[in-house]
Amino acid sequence: MNLDNGQVTELYERMLLIRRFEEQSGRLYMEGKIKGFLHLYIGEEAIAVGVISALRDDDYIITHYRDHGHALARGMPPNVVMAELMGKATGSSGGKGGSMHLFDVRRGFMGGHAIVGGQLPIAVGLALSAKYKGEDKVVVCFFGDGAVNQGEFHESLNMASLWDLPVLFLLENNLYGMGTHVDRTHAGGRDIYMSADAYKIPAAQIDGMNVVEVRETTQQALERIRSGKGPVFIEAMTYRFVGHSVQDPQAYRDSSEIEQWRAKDPLDAFRETCIAEALLSEEETAQIDETVRETVAEATRFAEESQEPSLESLYDNVYDRTRQV
């Protein structure tokens, strides 16, 4: 592994933060403190952390509605994310966005988009703006296997390749679009990365449970994209250990399948490798665990103690001027 102690600490801590944050979100949902839909990223942490750790601060990230992991990996404060999940005034959107619509524009985190496939053309446009302005920013666009059957997927790949735009298309293939297995939705089977070939976009399929592999593949892709050679497509194979949303009883899949994938838990695998290679000690992992628990507890406390948004805020930000129209 080409990483030092500081780097592996950061990767592990970020993945663990997402895991614990999501576990806590699920509990708060069951307690009725988080409403609406809640889609957890548990099992897929290595992708968000591996990819985003390879980015520059001025790169853009845009993603789907299972967005807490990407937001936290980008460094969005857990307090602000948790407050948004609880719909509080201190949340990232003052309680107007919710779980599926997290935004942190200052960090180049361009959302959480809840219409399947809808973020792909927007990613193309962000990349167009970068190229237009002569910047060497890259746009990472996360999407799931459910999105690849939308017309917008094909329109976006075509445009990005046609115009050599700096987009990294990052497919998180967790095998299910809601409850329907990819084998039943995609004529090309599980090797969705081959679709990119139709648009002359270089593509690879990787182990999305291995944070180091994700990070290194991303680094190679970024180098190519920044050199002006156009988009790259990465399909990261993964699995969500929990239901589509918190209320999903998962009648569509066997528990044995879940257990098989849980055996490949990206956090366990990474921790064990780091300890085996003496990049982390047992004491250090215990310390990270403690730090993360405190962070999540603090986020929960912050969100619970935050105020509800004022009724007056209802009309804010529909347009550039309040209450216009």
Partner: peptide, 27 residues
């Protein structure tokens, strides 16, 4: 660069314009 002939992809045309607007342009 400024008069862009696009593929017949209305959704991606508008989506790309939204993205470009978010990136600081005025499409």
């Amino acid at each position: 660069e400024r008069i862009i002939d696009s593929p017949i992809s209305e959704s991606a045309i508008v989506g790309a314009a939204i993205g470009a607007a978010l990136g600081g342009l005025r499409p």
